[in-house]
Design a protein around this nucleic acid. Structure first.
Lengths: 145, 145
DNA sequence: ATATAATTGAGATTGAGTCGCAATTACATT
DNA sequence: AATGTAATTGCGACTCAATCTCAATTATAT
């Protein structure tokens, strides 16, 4: 059993949730998607694997996957919530172009350390962070000139 | 004329938009609100100043105020988009408690500098950033134990 | 004063996300 | 293996923030 499924099974068990075929399929679909996805995309992928999976189950499973630490909410744009797979230690954040919508991912350990440092004086225990920097990407800057 | 109104007038003029009484009222309402607000709150405040202002106009004016640099989107939580007034140089970010929803504001210049530094290698020109750190506030940590 | 393009309010519409419910099912206990 | 039961399912109805439509109105240039 792949690591992710093991973790999910453990999470469900610990919370007295059941490991249903639908949940397995949705997890598998989430794992197969590369990059960002929203609920609709996850529903499409899940349906492909198993037509019987309903949109409602997808919406109901997403918070479980988040809680289990398998996916995470990355941003909300154009009224849709985006998620992506969590890989061990491979945290990253995003630059978002205001013109073309392009998303550039970056990783910066200093940023992560700084955020932990920021929390201390507030006695705040951080679990996750989201940093999004909006602006103009290289292409859109030159277009403007 | 207050600085904010001057800037808004300039923005409208430059884009061939008209300075209507409704827009003036909505700007004034936005300026009077301390802290975070969403579209509904802004509608309430605007209505108090002038009953004739419609919800639609508030929604239509918000992007103008954002574009003019007078307010900014700060986050989206519980499916509502939050805004707050932009004051010269007084940028800040947020700690959000996952349990009680409490929002702690903080300011950190190092974070701001770091974000500019991060953009450089991508030739990305940042205009604004949003950092939200989720976790547990002091109170909610002790409740758990 | 007039022309005209932008703006308005009211209400309809959209669409992501949630909920209620009867039928089904995973799993613990015999 | 059969049973009990509480969790889960799919479906369709619902919610509600945000957007759109449209006829009436209005800010500004001429």
């Amino acid at each position: 059993m792949p690591e992710a499924e093991k973790r999910f099974t453990k999470y469900l068990c610990e919370h007295q949730y059941k490991l249903t075929p639908q949940r397995k399929v949705i997890l598998q679909a989430a794992r197969e998607i590369k990059g960002h996805f929203n609920a609709d995309k996850l529903y499409d992928e899940s349906s492909t694997l198993d037509k019987s999976v309903s949109r409602a189950s997808v919406y109901r499973t997403i918070p479980l996957l988040v809680e289990a630490g398998l996916i995470m909410e990355t941003m909300r744009s154009q009224s849709k919530t985006s998620y992506e797979n969590v890989f061990k230690g491979l945290y990253h954040d995003h630059l978002i172009c205001a013109t073309c919508g392009k998303i550039i991912e970056f990783r910066n350990d200093e940023l992560m350390r700084l955020q932990n440092k920021i929390c201390k004086p507030f006695n705040f225990k951080p679990t996750e962070h989201m940093t999004a920097i909006k602006g103009y990407c290289k292409k859109c800057q030159s277009k403007k000139n």
